[in-house]
């Protein structure tokens, strides 16, 4: 399944004003960087799942999850390992192993307990929610709408166009990379049954033709901009207009309620990490 690509559908999220979705991402990004309570974050995840389910983009989020699994696991293990050298900040809960040791003349603690798992889970969940909120916007807002939305926020057209163009080009580049990998393995380059060092080496090999393809596409795009008389110094008109509807109001209301519940849960079930 494709990823980093708009999903053509007619769900309520697709129908929202792009500005509402941008605001959703900004608010959620702030919220997930502030909230460090697992219960609150778990509630937020449930809220997100309801949104994904109702918009039929759940499968795409699972694809994202599979792409992020190494990163999330790394974050989980990193915080788990860092926690091994700390006592739990709250009383209670199982401790699997506890000892003290001295190193460079200083006394250290080694404590493997539930709190290490808790911290690992909180940090991975935060990162996942942050990325998935952005991905939700990406899956439900095509790049033309993105440009329109950014323009409404008085972002200069050159900037809005560049952002839209990036999201137009990303799926093309992923497709190109896949085609290059397929073409090279068809000629005998082993990419399936090899160790990770060879895999990394192969990716370096693929980057060369990919670079040329991307440069050539970049040239074609700049030619097309010339053919279509794109001039950022000239005032443009717009064929389509965007405006908020009742759906936006309902979505904002739902978000306000969800944010309020998240904050309450954060206060009630806060465990310092």
């Amino acid at each position: 399944m494709d990823y980093l690509k708009y999903v053509d559908s007619n769900s309520f999220l697709h129908k929202l004003d792009p500005r509402t979705k941008f605001a959703f991402f900004v608010v959620m990004a702030v919220l997930t960087s502030v909230i460090k309570s697992f219960v609150a974050l778990a509630f937020l995840l449930v809220f997100f799942v309801i949104i994904w389910k109702s918009c039929h983009i759940g499968e795409h989020i699972l694809v994202l999850l599979s792409k992020l699994k190494v990163l999330l696991l790394f974050i989980f293990l990193l915080w788990l390992c860092l926690g091994l050298f700390q006592e739990p900040k709250v009383e209670g809960g199982p401790v699997f192993f506890h000892t003290t040791f001295s190193w460079v003349g200083q006394q250290h603690v080694f404590c493997f307990d539930w709190y290490d798992f808790y911290k690992g889970a909180v940090y991975s969940l935060r990162i996942f929610l942050m990325i998935s909120s952005f991905y939700t916007v990406l899956l439900t807002t095509n790049f033309s709408e993105m440009i329109l939305g950014l323009r409404k926020w008085h972002i200069p057209y050159s900037v809005a166009f560049a952002i839209g163009l990036i999201f137009q080009i990303i799926p093309i580049t992923i497709k190109e990379l896949q085609a290059i990998m397929d073409a090279q393995s068809s000629r005998g380059l082993e990419i399936d049954k090899c160790n990770w060092v060879t895999k990394v080496k192969n990716y370096v090999t693929f980057s060369f033709p990919l670079l040329f393809r991307v440069i050539s596409k970049g040239q074609s795009i700049s030619l097309a901009m010339h053919y279509y008389k794109l001039d950022f110094s000239v005032k443009r008109t717009a064929y389509k207009a965007i405006k908020a509807s009742r759906l936006d109001v309902y979505f904002i209301a739902a978000n306000v309620v969800a944010i309020a519940i998240t904050i309450v849960l954060r206060i009630m079930y806060y465990i310092p990490v």
């Binding site: 095509n142 033309s144 053919y227 064929y239």
Partner: peptide, 11 residues
């Protein structure tokens, strides 16, 4: 595919 700008045909 390198020339068309816009998601939809109208765009």
């Amino acid at each position: 595919e390198n020339q068309l700008f816009g998601y939809g045909v109208e765009d």
